[in-house]
Amino acid sequence: MAAGGDHGSPDSYRSPLASRYASPEMCFVFSDRYKFRTWRQLWLWLAEAEQTLGLPITDEQIQEMKSNLENIDFKMAAEEEKRLRHDVMAHVHTFGHCCPKAAGIIHLGATSCYVGDNTDLIILRNALDLLLPKLARVISRLADFAKERASLPTLGFTHFQPAQLTTVGKRCCLWIQDLCMDLQNLKRVRDDLRFRGVKGTTGTQASFLQLFEGDDHKVEQLDKMVTEKAGFKRAFIITGQTYTRKVDIEVLSVLASLGASVHKICTDIRLLANLKEMEEPFEKQQIGSSAMPYKRNPMRSERCCSLARHLMTLVMDPLQTASVQWFERTLDDSANRRICLAEAFLTADTILNTLQNISEGLVVYPKVIERRIRQELPFMATENIIMAMVKAGGSRQDCHEKIRVLSQQAASVVKQEGGDNDLIERIQVDAYFSPIHSQLDHLLDPSSFTGRASQQVQRFLEEEVYPLLKPYESVMKVKAELCL
């Protein structure tokens, strides 16, 4: 049975990233139509530049190519590739079939990587351009969430054990800070992308030097003109047959890092959902379990974690691919890159769409948070109580021993009897502590235990987050809708 299948058929496997999760716009960027249309555009740009620099290419040939950029006979191309065992030459023939007058000058002087690699770089750039505003929107939604809850005390956790208090907004800023680093890295790697350009079979530009009869300047002009037509500021000066596969490492490393950030955020949300302090959106008709109707599973956060793990592992592909590119190139890269580049971007696209949807509907339960604080705060307040007693004339050592005994009794009630923490009640009825009984409410005010959390939130948002989001103001209103 021949390899390949009808990918629109229910009898043929289709990647869930495309069929179930990723956005239509990201799927289109990695589609065959987008790819092969870009090949034709690159052939047109090459012909236009070659004509401008004096090669015998007519206006009629150029116009014929322009008129057929979208006229792609995919069936013919597939048949040609089956016959020739070469995808680029299959599309040269297919393009030439609908451009008979231009057929002889299509791909003039070029090698397969002229269309293959340059198209990949265009796709990487455009895919990054799709991700950047999506990530900015996630940051914006979380920034709104953090600002609104900047002063809401909550129990902090280290080692997932109760620690000092923080605020809900401050905790959210930990998430935002990681995503801001990801946004900066995505922008950097996007701006650092260079075009492969017009380089020939081993990167020496020998074929173009021959076409222009040894004119170095025209060869350099050709490279520059096509690079500018493709919208790049610069091209690699040095290439082998391909652009260095280190570029793929750079791009997928940034995406993998984004995956790590999203995994951490969504894990926190899942843990908070278990504590009943916070939940992701839950639709009115949504079913959490087929057997347990009360369940409210954090399905979206779980999906993000599941896909983020996949995204983090994909960076190993370009690392290994770059390491086995012998001399000017081997074909070890080809099949692998067809999979890992598309999957990385479709996965990143999915987790950003999902995280935006989550961040637009996060639900906080202040009463649950308050109750958990009441359970733990008495123990945390013991040092403040000791200091207040010393100020009232008591002995630190005597007070410490009193607190120690009462704390152990209260802990026994919590752990052995399943009761509430009654340390404060014990202190309130103990005559030894009568000098500070009137101060206990103040000493137990949760806001006095959150330090500068709310001020940190305000400063972080104003100095770091809002300036970073400013270039994306025009796209901030787009909502994230999930079908599944």
Rank of each mutant, 00 (worst) to 15 (best):
Ser9Met: 15
Ser12Arg: 15
Ser12Val: 13
Pro16Leu: 13
Arg20Leu: 01
Tyr21His: 03
Ser23Met: 07
Ser31Glu: 08
Ser31Lys: 06
Asp32Met: 12
Lys35His: 13
Arg40Ser: 00
Trp45Asp: 13
Glu48Cys: 06
Glu48Leu: 06
Ala49Glu: 04
Glu50Asn: 05
Leu53Arg: 00
Leu53Trp: 01
Gly54Leu: 08
Asp59Lys: 12
Gln61Ala: 11
Ile62Ala: 05
Ile62Glu: 02
Lys66Met: 10
Lys66Pro: 06
Ser67Phe: 10
Glu70Leu: 11
Ile72Arg: 04
Met76Ser: 12
Met76Tyr: 11
Glu79Ser: 11
Arg85Leu: 11
His86Ala: 01
Ala90Cys: 12
Phe95Glu: 01
Gly96Thr: 13
Cys98Gly: 10
Cys99Tyr: 05
Lys101His: 11
Ala102Val: 10
Gly104Ser: 14
Ile105Ser: 14
Gly109Arg: 00
Ala110Val: 04
Thr111Ser: 11
Ser112Gln: 00
Cys113His: 00
Tyr114Trp: 14
Asp117Leu: 01
Asn118Trp: 02
Asp120His: 09
Arg125Glu: 01
Leu135Val: 14
Arg137Leu: 15
Ile139His: 02
Arg141Gly: 15
Ala146Gly: 08
Leu152Met: 12
Thr154Glu: 06
Gln161Leu: 02
Pro162Arg: 03
Gln164His: 05
Leu165Ala: 00
Thr166Asp: 00
Cys173Trp: 01
Leu179Trp: 05
Met181Ala: 10
Leu183Ser: 10
Leu186Met: 11
Arg188Leu: 06
Asp192Asn: 10
Gly197Leu: 01
Gly197Gln: 01
Lys199His: 00
Thr201Leu: 01
Thr204Ala: 09
Ala206Asn: 12
Ser207Val: 07
Gln210Val: 10
His217Trp: 13
His217Cys: 11
His217Val: 13
Lys218Gln: 11
Asp223Gln: 11
Gly231His: 10
Gly240Ile: 06
Gln241Gly: 01
Tyr243Asn: 09
Asp248Ile: 04
Leu252Arg: 02
Leu255Ala: 09
Gly259Ala: 14
Val262Leu: 10
Lys264Pro: 05
Ile265Trp: 11
Cys266Asn: 08
Leu271Ser: 03
Leu272Thr: 06
Met278Phe: 10
Glu280Asp: 08
Pro293Lys: 02
Lys295Val: 01
Asn297Thr: 02
Met299Val: 12
Ser301Pro: 05
Ser306Met: 00
His310Gly: 08
Met316Ser: 13
Ala322Phe: 11
Phe327Thr: 12
Arg329Leu: 03
Leu331Glu: 01
Ala335Met: 00
Ala335Gln: 05
Arg337Pro: 01
Glu343Cys: 05
Phe345Asp: 04
Gln356Ala: 14
Ile358Arg: 00
Tyr365Arg: 13
Lys367Met: 07
Glu370Gly: 09
Arg372Thr: 06
Ile373Pro: 02
Gln375His: 07
Leu377Arg: 02
Phe379Arg: 04
Thr382Asn: 06
Met387Ala: 15
Met389Lys: 07
Val390Leu: 04
Gly393Cys: 07
Ser395Glu: 07
Arg396Ser: 04
Gln397Tyr: 03
Gln397Lys: 07
His400Lys: 02
His400Asn: 03
Ala410Glu: 04
Gln416Ala: 11
Glu417Thr: 08
Gly418Thr: 03
Gly419Phe: 07
Asp420Ser: 06
Arg426Gly: 07
Gln428Leu: 14
Ser434Cys: 08
Ile436Arg: 04
His442Ser: 11
Ser448Pro: 12
Phe449Gln: 05
Thr450Ser: 05
Gly451Cys: 02
Gln456Glu: 02
Gln458Leu: 13
Glu462Lys: 06
Glu464Lys: 04
Glu464Gly: 07
Glu464Phe: 06
Tyr466Gln: 14
Tyr466Leu: 13
Pro467Val: 14
Leu469Thr: 15
Glu473Lys: 15
Glu473Cys: 13
Glu473Val: 13
Lys477Asp: 08
Cys483Phe: 10
